[in-house]
Design a protein around this nucleic acid. Sequence first.
DNA 1: TTTAGAAAGTGACTAAAGTCATAGCTCTGT
DNA 2: ACAGAGCTATGACTTTAGTCACTTTCTAAA
Lengths: 210, 210
Amino acid sequence: MIRILLAEDQALVRQGVKMMIEQDEQLKVVAEAANGLEAVQQIETRLIDLVLMDIRMPGMNGLEATKIIKKRWPHIKILMLTTFNDDEYAVQALKDGASGFLLKTAERQKLIDAIYSCMNGGMTIHEEVAAKVVPRLLEHTKREPVTIPLTPRELAITQLVGEGKTNKEIAETLHLSVGTVKNHITQILQKLELRDRTQLAIYAIKHDLV
Amino acid sequence: MIRILLAEDQALVRQGVKMMIEQDEQLKVVAEAANGLEAVQQIETRLIDLVLMDIRMPGMNGLEATKIIKKRWPHIKILMLTTFNDDEYAVQALKDGASGFLLKTAERQKLIDAIYSCMNGGMTIHEEVAAKVVPRLLEHTKREPVTIPLTPRELAITQLVGEGKTNKEIAETLHLSVGTVKNHITQILQKLELRDRTQLAIYAIKHDLV
DNA sequence: TTTAGAAAGTGACTAAAGTCATAGCTCTGT
DNA sequence: ACAGAGCTATGACTTTAGTCACTTTCTAAA
């Protein structure tokens, strides 16, 4: 039997979800809470396996509650209940240890599936949320490995520029004269069609050279 | 009834998985393939709802096959079958449209749950994979919203520096004199404890101001 | 062997960036 | 009404950065 805590401020939604999941005899809502603080208090006094947590709640919201619960009771699974427009918070919730994202509007079977999958160690993200969240996570990973036409020395200097070093510091680091560093940088700027070291530093970071 | 294509080069694993999922009467393996190319060919001639796709296969691997299939038949769901050490490819597969990640070593119920969840529009990632993949996705997103102690004008100038603009260009953009821009930048550098505009540009990028 | 590119250097020069002192203007809050 | 913060501006100054021309050395390819 899976003991569920239902944290959701709207009593109507709470009743609806409760009815939906208790049609499955393995699932039992053993506690309810109207905000994050109540949720934490419930967990302190009851044995809970899984929390269905609304994101938006008055007082302490679902994100803070998730963070606290996962810190104190890492074994408790947390599924976020979200609406279409909550994907702003989705990434944060994942960081805080949530095991999935369910839409409040989902039909019963989706909800049940997600709960079982979660209890079995899975992570379920309903399609409508995943469609918004996953691209957001991926966009920061899409750096294509462009081959940068620089010699090893030029690359080394570019990296140091990307760390904010001055010519003097670069010269010292690489045991060169300042003049040589300048010459190299002139070369680099020409090759990459950039104007100055600031643009070069930006280039270096955007191409993951630092 | 869910029509499944099983793409997996090891015949033994294929048999095992087939037996596991066909214990559920709603699931039927209607086709098998030993590499990505065969998988695509099977889909051309058969009606398929879902593909269980191994990542590592001889010839065309699971990633390429996923990309091709999702492009030509976007409605077909694809679950990746992975081992512990494949998380390198996980991010790529997600980009290509995979609906989840299952471990080959998972017990039967997890597999079944994932298939149903997937067909219902969910995205299931088994815990062992999620534990490795999600942090990787999040690491590029972890910029905590540090409150940057800059006035609106200073912020605007910082952004432009982060775009690689010169003082003259910044002055023109904001309708200021070059001297004013310099003054602001001196202020900014002091506040942020930086040395020059290059370090400021780096700061701007790393704090997502550009 | 000649040639070409990468690497390192010097010197002289220009342009850009950054510092400092000082000052006027407008708003906001007490 | 007054102080403080923010924005603007000048002028004088120093320091860095960037360009250009020209030289040397080494190595690997034609």
